[in-house]
């Protein structure tokens, strides 16, 4: 099993800065480690999430193999790959939602803003407040539209009605849903259409003002028009948020993302600018997948 070196994206006009490197777990060969360190040294402050030598196990089955990659700030990064390749698992490692699965085990390191999120001192609840998530199937709570958006802020301790109203309006506006629902905020969220529900879930996620938004195939259950709306919204949101999206739809990855990671059987095969992945992939496997020869 070969270790993939961390593939670091260097945005233009970067200011090289030395990033502190601490010890990681994982089984690396010294030379690979060195290469990795070199790469990371080039990393600048605009890295939002740094994944290092990540292994993930469901019981004894290894779902992710030595994944290392840097996700840049305020950009959209897409994970693509065939079903079961581990892209959703990788996404769920970032907000530690995999903790809930019995028998799941993580090796390696994920740094969000320089802090290892798997270190024992990390407060998972706080972490999740900083990392919003949108799921494959829209999953609004069986509450009113207003209560859905206000759920996160309420949990976070916002009690004042005026403040809540403001947050709800701002979040719904950001999710481009306000004009459609402003007259029926107290109606059940379950009465919205699929696309509206998904945008409501996005509004709910950004109501707690996270830094990062994880999207797990957010458009797979939507029609093309609703999909277009969500994509438009994502491009708008990336000004303020770092977005990581898992998608089955390669056109979608090509349309919205700046960077694309291709995973296959739990391994990171290639990670680069989306343009490069789709026009001139470095690996044969990537090319085969992109051109539809398998997957």
């Amino acid at each position: 099993m070969t270790t993939e070196a961390a593939m670091t994206i260097s945005p233009k006009n970067r200011k090289p800065e030395v990033m502190r490197i601490t010890e990681w777990s994982g089984n690396h060969h010294p030379e690979n480690l060195q290469a990795l360190q070199d790469k990371i040294t080039e990393t600048n402050t605009s890295t939002a999430i740094a994944i290092r030598a990540l292994n993930f196990y469901y019981g004894t089955a290894r779902a992710l193999v030595d994944i290392s990659l840097d996700i840049p700030k305020n950009e959209i990064t897409a994970f693509i790959g065939p079903s079961g390749c581990g892209k959703s698992t990788l996404l769920r490692c970032i907000n530690r939602l995999n903790d809930l699965i019995e028998g799941a085990r993580v090796e390696g390191r994920i740094e969000v803003q320089g802090q290892d999120i798997y270190s024992p001192s990390v407060d998972v609840i706080n972490l999740r407040k900083n990392i919003g998530m949108v799921f494959q199937k829209s999953n609004p709570f069986p509450k009113s539209i207003y209560e859905n958006v206000a759920y996160g802020p309420r949990i976070a301790g916002v009690r004042k009605r005026t403040e809540l109203n403001e947050i709800v309006e701002r979040s719904l506006r950001s999710a481009a849903l306000w004009d459609e629902v402003k007259d029926r905020l107290n109606a059940s969220a379950l009465g919205l259409s699929g696309g509206q529900q998904q945008r409501l879930c996005i509004a709910r996620a950004i109501a707690v003002q996270p830094q990062i938004i994880l999207m797990d195939e957010p458009c797979s259950a939507l029609d093309p028009i609703a999909t277009a709306k969500i994509e438009e919204l994502m491009l708008e949101l990336k000004k303020n948020y770092t977005i990581v999206i898992v998608t089955h739809n390669m056109q979608q990855a090509a349309r919205v993302s700046e960077y694309t990671a291709f995973l296959w059987l739990g391994k990171l095969i290639e990670y680069d600018h989306t343009n490069k992945i789709f026009t001139n992939p470095a690996k044969k496997l990537t090319e085969d997948y992109i051109t539809g020869r398998f997957g």
Partner: peptide, 27 residues
Amino acid sequence: VPRAMREASLALGATKFETIWRVLLPT
């Protein structure tokens, strides 16, 4: 109660207790 509903609540930074009290019990 669908798993997705619990995950939605937890992903918003709710504790397990808050998820039970505010989402699971009403549902």
